[in-house]
Computed example of a mutant assay.
Amino acid sequence: MPPPSTHLAAQRLAAQLPALPADMKGNHGRERARYAFVTRTLTILGTRGTVTGDRAEDWRRVTRQLGILWQMGRGEFRLAVYELEQSARAAEAEEPAPAGAPTGTGPHGGDLIFPWQATAEDWISVPGGPAGPFEEATMAMPDRNGIARTVVLIDQGHRFHPGGPQHVNVILDSGVPIERLDAVTERARAREQWAKDHQEWHAG
Rank of each mutant, 00 (worst) to 15 (best):
Thr6Phe: 04
His7Phe: 10
His7Lys: 00
His7Gln: 04
Ala9Gln: 02
Gln11Glu: 09
Gln11Tyr: 07
Leu13Tyr: 13
Leu13Val: 03
Leu13Phe: 11
Leu17Gly: 04
Ala19Ile: 06
Leu20Trp: 06
Pro21Leu: 08
Met24Lys: 01
Lys25Gly: 12
Lys25Ala: 13
Gly26Ser: 11
Asn27Ile: 04
Asn27Phe: 07
His28Cys: 11
Gly29His: 03
Arg30His: 02
Glu31Pro: 00
Arg32Glu: 12
Ala33Ile: 03
Ala33Pro: 01
Arg34Gln: 14
Phe37Pro: 05
Val38Ile: 11
Thr39Asn: 08
Thr41Gly: 11
Leu42Arg: 05
Thr43His: 13
Ile44Val: 15
Ile44Cys: 14
Leu45Ala: 10
Gly46Gln: 11
Gly46Tyr: 12
Thr47Ala: 13
Thr47Met: 11
Thr50His: 11
Thr50Asn: 11
Val51Ala: 15
Val51Glu: 11
Thr52Ser: 15
Thr52Lys: 00
Thr52Pro: 07
Gly53Arg: 15
Asp54Pro: 11
Glu57Arg: 14
Asp58Asn: 14
Asp58Leu: 09
Asp58Pro: 10
Arg60Thr: 02
Arg60Ala: 06
Arg61Ser: 10
Val62Ser: 11
Val62Phe: 08
Thr63Phe: 14
Thr63Tyr: 09
Arg64Thr: 09
Leu66Cys: 01
Leu66Gly: 04
Ile68Met: 02
Ile68Cys: 01
Leu69Arg: 15
Trp70Thr: 13
Gly73Met: 03
Gly73Gln: 05
Gly73Asp: 05
Arg74Gln: 04
Arg74Cys: 01
Arg74Met: 00
Gly75Thr: 06
Phe77Lys: 09
Phe77Asn: 11
Arg78Glu: 10
Arg78Pro: 04
Leu79Glu: 15
Ala80Ser: 14
Val81Gly: 01
Val81Lys: 00
Tyr82Leu: 15
Tyr82Thr: 12
Tyr82Ala: 14
Glu83Met: 08
Gln86Tyr: 07
Ser87Lys: 02
Ser87Val: 03
Arg89Ser: 14
Ala90Phe: 08
Ala90Met: 12
Ala91Phe: 05
Ala91Asp: 02
Ala93Gly: 02
Ala93Cys: 10
Glu95Tyr: 11
Glu95Gln: 13
Pro96Asp: 00
Gly100Val: 02
Pro102Arg: 05
Pro102Thr: 09
Pro102Cys: 13
Pro102Gln: 10
Gly106Leu: 08
Pro107Asp: 03
His108Ala: 06
Gly109Glu: 01
Leu112His: 04
Leu112Thr: 06
Leu112Asn: 06
Leu112Gln: 10
Phe114Leu: 09
